[in-house]
């Protein structure tokens, strides 16, 4: 219970920090992004109605109300998922754009991360079980090497080789342009075909980290007395490797999952840019190019929320597999 409370507190605190940073950054930076935006809107020939002006005021702060009042109003808007207007995608609101992009990213990054974590963990177990063998050496060296490339670089190479030269997969996009996004077998196949390369990129770039983490934990676990005793008990190797060594070794790896998730998501966002994938990464990229601050900040908040919630879910799963936490002992 204490564990659950602590994690809930962390969830709320992280969200609060993100929201507050989001509020403070435009107000503390030199210049006045709010005024600049109004000028841009007017220049582009979109005269702003009072409602739009109001939302810019709340998000970026152009009025002279006290900072505290501004903050209070801002929190109110954020809680109602009211992130204001997008400048670059006029007349869409930020919330509408995010609503459209989010499922693509959740699907792609979610599936790729689960595959990568499962694969990396399994390979880590294999490497540790045969430690100091050729298999181990090969696996860890490749893993360490893959881990040092930027995700988006892999994406570029994947597009070039498997898309451009071999024509195995489409070069970009989330689905064939012109296809109607309906729930049909044809469309789903199309989406999967477009998703394979980006997903592969994310898996290849992130699998090494899980592998090495799991291998190191597992080697520490293999030195424990209970593994030796399991061997003395005459249990089968496979049983010892999974129930005795891997089950214990995966616990710190799950804690690591939470810490690495932000990094994986960051890499995935850049991957989307390379593939022109219609998700949050691409949207963020366009927001950056067009200096669309409300959109940028809305995306930032939503990504933080997703990562933090994913972490929270993983923490709840952790409770299921570690009896020490279940029975109220502390984990750090």
């Amino acid at each position: 219970m204490r564990f659950f409370l602590k994690r809930t507190l962390l969830l709320i605190a992280t969200l609060w920090v993100a929201v507050t940073l989001n509020f403070l950054i435009p107000r503390l930076m030199p210049g006045n992004p709010g005024q600049a935006m109004i000028a841009k809107f007017t220049g582009e020939g979109h005269p702003l109605n009072p409602a739009a002006l109001h939302s810019i005021d709340i998000m970026l702060g152009i009025s002279h109300a006290s900072l505290l009042t501004q903050y209070w109003n801002y929190l109110g808007e954020v809680v109602h998922l009211n992130f204001g207007m997008s400048f670059s995608y006029f007349p869409y609101t930020v919330a509408q754009l995010i609503e459209r992009a989010l499922p693509w990213t959740l699907g792609l990054v979610g599936i790729a991360t689960i595959i990568s974590f499962a694969l990396g963990t399994a390979l880590g177990v294999i490497a540790a079980w045969g430690r100091n063998t050729t298999t181990d050496g090969l696996l860890t060296t490749i893993a360490a090497f893959l881990n040092t490339f930027p995700y988006f670089w892999f994406a570029l190479v994947a597009v070039y080789i498997m898309g451009f030269i071999l024509h195995w997969f489409p070069l970009s996009g989330g689905y064939t342009p012109g296809a109607t996004p309906v729930f049909s077998l044809g469309f789903i196949t199309d989406v999967i075909r477009h998703g394979v390369l980006p997903a592969l990129t994310i898996v290849v770039s992130s699998v090494g980290g899980w592998l090495i983490g799991m291998r190191n934990n597992m080697i520490n676990t293999l030195g424990e007395d209970y593994v030796l005793l399991a061997q003395a008990k005459g249990l089968k190797s496979r049983w010892i490797a999974t129930m005795y060594a891997a089950h214990n070794a995966i616990l710190p790896n799950i804690t690591g999952f939470g810490m690495a998730l932000g990094f994986v998501v960051a890499g995935s966002l850049l991957t989307e840019v390379v593939f022109g994938y219609p998700g949050m990464g691409n949207l963020l990229y366009n927001a950056v190019i067009n200096e669309d601050y409300p959109l940028m900040q809305g995306i930032f908040l939503v990504i933080v929320t997703c990562v933090v919630v994913a972490n929270f879910i993983v923490d709840l799963l952790y409770v299921l597999i570690d009896p020490r936490v279940r029975y109220g002992e502390e984990r750090d």
Partner: peptide, 9 residues
């Protein structure tokens, strides 16, 4: 908090 907060965005 800063460990969980995704840095890139």
């Amino acid at each position: 908090v800063f460990l969980v907060l995704p840095a890139l965005p």
